[in-house]
Nucleic acid binder design. Structure first.
Length: 263
DNA sequence: AGCCAGGACAAGT
DNA sequence: ACTTGTCATGGC
């Protein structure tokens, strides 16, 4: 299946730090699972090539946000040298529309952690408690499944103090006291507040869940790398200056800052 | 050995 | 509304 979204980069999309489960294969393609659907994805001549069940193609078209014109959005951002370099560096990245529940748990795990270790913890979480889909491919475990567990069960994850947060979120969702789908209809500030009612979810994690899980592209997560990047914005780094797609700008900047600002 | 990694939380000003 | 210590783990 070949889709033509203009300038899709699998590497920049899957390795920019927004997701943790797409694994680069020796041939440069990325293999993973989204929404319980397995796929192998790569780019060819700037186009997205998706190997998946034909019935899942619409899902991945939406998942990869392929219908959005990122080039035009990038042109709408203020043109300082740093932002321009960041956009060039992340050429072809797209903000994934990940499953909200997976994004929630993933970014709870991300706090005060590094990306390699986050990947390991999530990988163990899925292989231990997620349904097996194929060889080395697992669905993300459901809230109902995780809600049955205790901290001891999560010890093999080596998630540290975050294990309690995972269980707490699972129980909130499984019991119905927190309904992930309710977030969609809220505006970003209201949705942010609702997410922060969960134990272990502060402002930054909430912003990541909104951006990467709910497609709320005005959410603007600020982590340690964004704080480092702030030094390159003499007048300050004002999210509102990037408009309603500030989250996309954020991801270019984050990815560039984390890369060491090279190339 | 100490510092850092896509922080959150409670307790103290 | 801001500052500080603590939380668990691992790489450098």
């Amino acid at each position: 299946m070949i889709l033509d979204p203009k300038r899709f980069s699998a590497a920049h999309t899957f390795d920019c730090g927004q997701c943790f489960r797409w694994m680069r294969q020796p041939d440069g393609s990325y293999k993973g699972v989204a929404g319980g659907r397995p796929a192998t994805i790569y780019d060819k001549d700037g186009r997205a090539v998706i190997e998946c069940d034909p019935g899942d193609l619409d899902y991945f078209n939406n998942y990869l946000d392929l219908d959005r014109d990122y080039a035009s959005i990038a042109l709408s951002f203020p043109r300082d040298d740093f932002t321009s370099a960041a956009i060039e560096h992340g050429y072809g990245l797209r903000i994934l529309r990940q499953e909200p529940w997976e994004a929630l748990i993933s970014f709870i795990i991300s706090q005060c952690n590094n990306i390699q270790r986050i990947q390991g913890i999530i990988s163990r979480l899925c292989s231990l408690f997620g349904d097996k889909i194929a060889d080395d491919l697992y669905a993300f475990p459901t809230a109902e499944r995780l809600a049955q567990l205790c901290e001891e069960d999560l010890a093999p994850l080596r998630a540290g103090y975050r294990a309690a947060y995972i269980l707490s979120a699972a129980k909130s969702v499984a019991s119905g006291s927190f309904v992930p789908d309710d977030i969609y209809s809220m505006d970003t500030p209201e949705a942010r507040k609702a997410l922060m009612s969960l134990n272990g979810v502060g402002g930054k994690v909430a912003d990541c869940v909104l951006l990467f899980g709910y497609g709320k592209l005005d959410a603007f997560p600020v982590d340690t790398w964004m704080k480092k990047a702030r030094a390159y914005y003499p007048g300050g780094m004002d999210p509102t200056s990037f408009g309603s797609y500030a989250g996309i700008a954020q991801q270019y900047i984050f990815y560039y800052a984390r890369s060491g600002m090279k190339k």
